[in-house]
């Protein structure tokens, strides 16, 4: 589904990614871990199409399409979803109206009729239950005055509504208390299925305890230095990133 080959990228002239390779298949859950500044969020931004980042080398194919050629909106319409680390507050735009617009833009792109009001409300109701989000939040402006947990829950709600093929969760666990983390993780788990891939970017083991990823990758200095199964995350939790860095510098010395 997603094929990242040798991606190099820079922002404002500073090289951040130094050749990332990653293959993600439908139904898989991949976790990307790594210390601060390793390039995790840069990778998410590049995949979503943020304009400040420049891809200097490599390719990204999503469902056979050259994704780097697509605008952010077309990537979303093709089935990509990014849950933001810091969801943006947009005063004056109602959440419900926004999601309806987004959904219908996507449907239009895929040659479908816009959803009528009744079907839309039915879908909203169903997905609201799924991710345990309160209706009152959705009548308000996008994320305006939401708590950290409410913002993250709203991200997962949007994911539920937009039904992406590939979802990237960028530090969705950051800033969440234990209860909020459980609710968000349960929401994500309910959205897992054999057709949908998920990439989880995180610092911590605790979200992975809930999600049980199929693969764990460790990003250091803009490169994936180790890939493994969920046990790798446990090892990291125990030993920290330093042991990998040590191994890495040893390897580079050789």
């Amino acid at each position: 589904m997603l094929s990242i080959k040798n991606i190099h990228a820079s922002v404002e002239g500073k090289q951040i990614l130094n050749g990332i390779n990653l293959e993600v298949k439908a139904g898989e859950v991949h976790a990307i871990m790594g210390p601060n500044g390793s390039g995790k969020s840069t990778l998410a931004s590049i995949l979503a199409g943020r304009e400040d980042y420049e891809v200097t080398e490599g390719s990204v194919f999503f469902e056979g399409n050259d994704m780097l050629e697509l605008s952010p909106e077309d990537r979303a319409r093709e089935g990509l979803f990014l849950a933001f680390q810091y969801p943006v507050e947009i005063p004056g735009v109602s959440t419900t109206n926004f999601i309806k617009t987004a959904l219908n833009e996507k449907r239009k792109y895929n040659g479908q009729e816009p959803l009528d009001a009744v079907s839309f409300l039915k879908m909203m109701k169903q997905k609201m239950q799924l991710v345990e989000i309160d209706k009152s939040l959705l009548t308000r402006s996008i994320n305006e005055g939401f708590s950290g947990g409410e913002k993250k829950r709203n991200e997962i709600f949007q994911m539920a509504m937009l039904e992406p093929k590939l979802a990237i969760l960028d530090e969705t666990d950051s800033g969440l208390d234990i209860d909020a983390l459980r609710i968000v993780a349960n929401g994500v788990n309910k959205l897992r299925n054999e057709n949908r891939a998920i990439i989880v970017i995180t610092h911590y083991q605790r979200l992975l305890d809930y999600l049980q990823p199929d693969f764990v990758h460790v990003l250091v200095n803009g490169r994936i230095v180790r890939s493994g199964t969920k046990e790798l995350a446990l090892e990291l939790e125990e030993k920290g990133y330093d042991f990998l860095k040590d191994e890495l510098s040893l390897a580079e010395a050789l």
Binding site: E73, A76, F81, V93, F98, E105, Y109, L162
Partner: peptide, 19 residues
Amino acid sequence: ALFYLRTRGISKELAQSML
């Protein structure tokens, strides 16, 4: 805000007018 709306599939032009 513009980028946020676009990542949800809303075109740049429409996102602009919404804002």
